[in-house]
Design a binder for these strands. Structure first.
Length: 251
DNA sequence: ATGGTGGTAAGACCA
């Protein structure tokens, strides 16, 4: 089956692209839905064969998981990490725990938003360390690039949001509790990005960053057969600034 | 260092 993660940057604005993309996946984790729960277009997805779990707010943030398979349990209470914002959902499907996360952006290094981002990553690591012997997949927009080869200009961006030292350290610490970066199991090349700024012709120049991930514990990582970035989605008219990441998994 | 574009929603705010 195919699982995917995609920051759609508004569900409403991306509905037509998403409906097309859903034809090719079985489970998808969405971020930045920007829609309140009572306005979530659940019926449209149900009619396409997907079960839905969602947690949103008006205009900002918001996450959802759509699944062609039964969703056996849902955990939505992550407020001690999110602190009022709608950013994390966890479900269990076919005996696999699946966590969808939209990490905070952080705005500027040293700002209160930056501290909130660092704390968010640390608290998430603290929460997940108890699940490392499980079949666990975490996926989403982590808003931090891991390595030099994951950004277009590491020398400059090391002083910018998304690639600063403290962000990378926090993300590395989360990673090292025992995750495998599924994309890197199949592709070790540089310049494999998932996000390009709308501004400054970034996509045409391939000035991007790899900040969207599918990570898995060892228990389940061996079941993955492929992983790729659906870059064509970013080339469409009216795109999200993120491209989906898709992984093939054998269960 | 600044400002570039896009989404929401109707003027900033967020990314």
């Amino acid at each position: 089956m195919l699982i995917a993660t995609w920051n759609v940057n508004s569900l409403n604005a991306r509905m037509e692209h998403l409906k097309e993309f859903l034809k090719s996946v079985d489970i998808i984790a969405l971020q930045e839905t920007k829609v309140e729960d009572d306005k979530f277009p659940e019926k449209i997805f149900n009619d396409m064969g997907f079960n839905c779990v969602y947690k949103g707010e008006k205009g900002y943030n918001g996450v959802a998981i759509l699944s062609k398979f039964e969703i056996d349990s849902v955990e939505r209470d992550f407020d001690w990490i999110e602190r009022g914002q709608k950013r994390i959902l966890m479900v269990e499907i076919k005996g696999i725990k699946l966590l969808n996360a939209y990490f905070p952006h952080g705005r500027n290094i040293g700002s209160p938003y930056y501290e909130y981002k660092i704390e968010f990553i640390e608290k998430l690591a603290d929460y997940l360390k108890d699940f490392m012997d499980d079949r666990l997949i975490i996926m989403g927009d982590f808003n931090v690039a891991m390595e030099n080869k994951d950004v277009y200009a590491p020398d400059i961006l090391q002083y910018s949001i998304g690639f600063s030292e403290r962000e990378r350290k926090a993300l590395k610490k989360l990673y090292e509790i025992g995750f495998v970066d599924i994309f890197r199991m199949f592709n070790n090349e540089a310049k494999q990005y998932t996000w390009w700024d709308y501004r400054a012709n970034s996509f045409k120049r391939n000035a991007g960053m790899r900040i969207d991930y599918i990570w898995a514990t060892n228990k389940i990582a061996k079941n993955f057969k492929n992983c790729f970035i659906e870059k064509e989605m970013r080339a469409k008219p009216k795109p999200s600034d993120h491209a989906p990441v898709v992984a093939e998994i054998e269960i």
